[in-house]
Amino acid sequence: MTRSFRESLLLIVGVIAAMVLSLAPFLWFVSIGFKPQVEITAIPPRLFPSDVSFTAVHEAIFTFGLMHFIKNSVIVAGCTTIVCVVVGCLAAYPLARLRIPYRRVILLGILAVAMFPQISIAGPVWRILRALGWLNTYQGLIIPYLALTLPLTVWILANFFGQLPSELEEAALVDGAGLFQVLTRVIMPLAAPGVFTAALLTFIYSWNEFFFALLIMTERDRQTLPVGIALFPGEYTMPWGEISAASTIATIPLILLVLFFQKRIIAGLTAGAVKG
């Protein structure tokens, strides 16, 4: 066997392993979501439903109010992402460019904040929010999310900004752009892959986050998707079909977002700017 053949075989095995590990549970609950009621608990279980049923989807939406949770999640995740990217860009640009003493230490400090276990800040966060009267409000969830996602966003953006040739900014400055215009018209378009990566990570985090959402949103009115779906089970019922259908629907926006932004998250956008 040639070396390259062995290597590519290893790669293929790796890819398949990764796909099976991460996709199998997903496919399983997709399948459950569209199974007729009787097949969900059938033994032995069937991977492919004998008939595609939309009962669970219908139930999830109309009985369990799935759309209501989706609305809350869109508001929370959307606001978190927008504010996070805007603030992140404004913070990352000086950190990437200005001659600040201990720049590296500051960046590492910011990253260290992102490493805090959530549970360690849960108590103080809850007390602060209660004192502000922000429990069960959107900002009550958005602000903790910002605190948790900003460090990584700043880190990613500062690294992306730092890789751009500084001549481009200098050219823009000489051309008559102010610092803010340099950021919005030159730096951000060029760092678009970084900006979109950071935005996507932030969105996915706030879309999926469960612990703080459960802690802060105790009223059904404000609950986000993960909490909402987790509270589907009643005292005597375990609506597996509805949970699976809702989870599938909850995943669709994320998949669409990734597919949409995938085009933007390409390397080599700066090709042609400067002599490489």
Binding site: E167, L168, E170, A171, L190, V274, K275
Partner: peptide, 19 residues
Amino acid sequence: PPGDRNVAMVFQNYAIYPH
């Protein structure tokens, strides 16, 4: 600031905007 000096500059590695 550079933008208000009415000078134009050509850089060694071109520095043209790739986007």
